[in-house]
């Protein structure tokens, strides 16, 4: 896995191993925020950005932790760095783009507990990616997350106009939809690096 080319890694993480639909990472925002198209896009963008920052920090931290043989501290240091990264993004956004800051609202701090972010950090460590590979991996992960969120939001906006039986409404329906999307994404299996 460690010798896959950058293009392969990117394609594989966006489509074949899509974070949400194939690896079940970041499901909470996927179900929670995918109600409308105009909140889905900024959410995807913010998550992608934090993912990139977290991936960079995690790479440095992993080097530090392995050099000093403190592997048992890896998880704790990762989660602390992610929380700080989110805080940083929040402060920067508040200062330079108050409009976007307000649009994202509560979802911004909640990115800390998005497992897709910690997932990026953990998977890039497990697969022993180099720095360039790790960055491309996180970019692909962010793009894939945004794609899944947008597709789902589009579908759910259409569903609002349909008449759905009472029993099926709510999360059950979203999960069924996600299942169908996931089935469709399985068509990409084997694309890029594959497994």
């Amino acid at each position: 896995m460690a010798d896959a080319t950058l293009g392969q890694i990117f394609l594989a993480t966006v489509l074949a191993n899509n974070f949400v639909l194939a690896m079940f990472l970041g499901l909470c925002p996927f179900i929670g925020v995918s109600g409308r198209l105009n909140t889905a896009l900024p959410m995807g963008a913010a998550t992608s950005f934090v993912m990139l920052v977290a991936s960079l920090c995690a790479y440095g931290l992993n080097w530090l932790v392995t050099t000093f043989e403190l592997e048992f501290l890896r998880l704790i240091s990762y989660i602390v760095i992610i929380a700080s990264a989110v805080q940083l993004v929040e402060m920067v956004l508040k200062k330079y783009s108050p409009a976007l800051f307000r649009a994202l609202g509560i979802y911004l701090p909640l990115i800390t507990t998005n497992c897709a972010i910690l997932g990026v950090a953990l998977f890039q460590t497990a697969r022993e990616y180099s720095l360039a590979q790790a960055l491309v991996f996180s970019l692909g992960g962010g793009a894939g997350f945004t794609l899944a969120l947008l597709l789902m939001a589009g579908l759910r906006e259409r569903l609002n106009l349909a008449s759905v039986p009472n029993v099926v409404q709510g999360t059950a329906l979203s999960l069924m939809l996600a299942g169908l999307l996931s089935l469709a994404f399985m068509g990409f299996a084997g694309l890029g690096a594959g497994e």
Partner: peptide, 10 residues
Amino acid sequence: LPPGGFFVLG
């Protein structure tokens, strides 16, 4: 496979 997870929970 992944779709099965979504279907069963649904």
